[in-house]
Each structure stands twice: as C-alpha cells, then as structure tokens.
Amino acid sequence: MKKLVEILPDKQALIERSLTLVLEKMQSAIQERGQCTLALSGGSTPKPLYEALAEQPLPWEKIQVFWGDERYVPSDHPESNQRMARQAWLDRVSIPAANIHPMPTSAGDPARDAQNYETELQQWFKLHSGEVPVFDIVLLGIGDDGHTASLFPRTEALKVSDRLVTVGNKDGQPRLTFTARLINQARCVIFLVAGESKRPALKQIFAPSGDEMTYPARLVQPKGELWWLLDKAAGAELNSTTSDQRAIGDQSLKANN
C-alpha cells in the first residue's frame, strides 16, 4: 500500500487539492483502461468537490459513477447521498444516465437492496463468483466517531468479509454500504477530512495500533494508493501522532508505506 497524507491550510485548499488529485486519477484511468470508475461519498465535505467537478470539461461518457454508501431513504429525500451528488454535480453535466449507478433503496428491505447492488456490481464489472470489483477511485470521509462509508463502530457490518455490499446501522437506522473488502480492492482511496472535531478520531486512526471495531476507518488498507487529504483544523495534531511521515513545507505531510 502506498500511503500519502497531506495537510492543507484550510477547507478551500483541501477542495482544490482534492479536485486536482481526482482529475489526475480520472485521466490516468481513462488513458490506461478507457474509462474511470468512481465511488462517491456523502456528507458535507465532498459537496464543493462535486460542484467543482461539474465545471470541468470531462469526457463524461467515459466516467462511471457509483456510491460507496447510502442512507436508506428515497432518492429525493433531503438526506440522500444520491440527491446531493446529483444536485451538486451529475444533473449539471452531460453524463449519460446509464453511467450513473445509485444504490437502490426502494425494495423496502435493506438486505435485499444491498444484494441487488452487489449483483449490479458483479454484472457491470463482469465478475465471476468470488471476484471483487477494482474501482479506480473511492472517495471517503470520516465521522467524529471514526466511521467511514456506513461502517459504524461496533456494528455487524464491520465483520462482513464475504460480501461486496452490506447493511450498515447508525442508531437503528439502516444504510447500504461497501464492505471493507470491496473498498480495499481499489486502485486509489481518497479520504477528505475537515474540521477540528475530527482530531480525536484521526489520532486513533493513525495510531500504530488500535481497535478497528471502535475506529472503523482503520480497516481501510487498500491494495493501491491511500490518500488522506486533511485541512489544518483536522490534521493539526498529526505531527505528534504519526512517526512514519516526513514534513513537506509548512502544511503538508506525505508518506509511502
């Protein structure tokens, strides 16, 4: 795994850096494989990134958009990750409808919809039984509790190792989520993290040893590149908690593992 950590001066710099990085990875994927497969995250942090992507002159027919997790609500619900991404980005560009692959939430049964999305992934990636899709880019964030996607602390979803998509649980509310197994096959995983409230969780996630059941983001160890893009408010304490990094400039840390 190649691990890189960058601490940016503020959230605006974080979004600008993430845009540059995502565009670079998109271009590489299209050049190498003819298309780019991208899994989106929800939450407030990536929304400005999606808005910035909507302004780019990209070859939309070569970009395939999926979601790494979704609240189990209708697609037009204010809390829907799909709705946010469509409003901020996808409805504003000429991407073919067939290139957008939202998580289904209409069966009335989260487990069945998780299976339906897993089947869609297997069919779209043309996989045989037991094979795992390899996404070009997976975007993630973390919560103050150290969760990522809808992999929440001390929940059953963290133990799922034989599925691609499973049901997450937040305070009794079901969500659909990629499993750690699927996330970790990606060529590039990019965490976007902003805000001082994330510091305690980051300290535990970056600690040399720790409990993945308590801080699920520790489970993310992809076979490809792992990028942590943090604003200064979130990453200010990492200098004292990460021994495998070397400072570059005033605000940036990078490391290769």
Rank of each mutant, 00 (worst) to 15 (best):
M1R: 07
V5H: 01
K11N: 04
K11S: 02
E16T: 02
T20F: 02
T20A: 08
L23Y: 03
K25A: 01
K25D: 00
A29T: 06
Q31R: 15
R33T: 11
R33N: 13
R33A: 04
Q35I: 02
C36A: 12
T37D: 06
L40Q: 05
L40N: 03
S41L: 00
G42P: 03
L49Q: 08
E51L: 11
L53Y: 08
L53V: 08
A54D: 05
E61Y: 03
I63Y: 00
P74K: 07
D76M: 06
P78N: 05
E79M: 02
S80A: 14
R83C: 06
R83Q: 14
A85T: 13
R86W: 13
L90K: 04
V93P: 02
P96G: 10
A98C: 01
I100K: 00
T105N: 03
P110S: 04
R112A: 15
R112S: 08
Q115A: 15
L121Y: 09
Q122I: 09
Q123Y: 04
Q123M: 06
W124P: 00
F125Q: 05
E131S: 14
L140M: 12
I142R: 03
I142Y: 08
G143F: 12
G143C: 14
H147C: 09
T148P: 07
A149M: 12
R154S: 15
R154N: 15
A157I: 13
A157P: 14
L158A: 15
R163C: 06
T166P: 03
N169D: 15
Q173Y: 13
Q173R: 15
R175A: 11
L182C: 09
N184T: 12
C188W: 02
A194E: 10
A194H: 07
K198D: 01
P200G: 08
Q204N: 13
I205Y: 06
F206I: 08
P208D: 09
S209E: 14
E212Y: 04
M213H: 06
Y215D: 02
P216E: 00
A217T: 05
R218L: 06
R218W: 01
K223Y: 08
K232T: 04
A233G: 00
A233V: 00
A234V: 06
A236D: 10
L238T: 07
T241G: 00
T242H: 11
Q245K: 05
R246D: 09
D250G: 12
L253H: 12
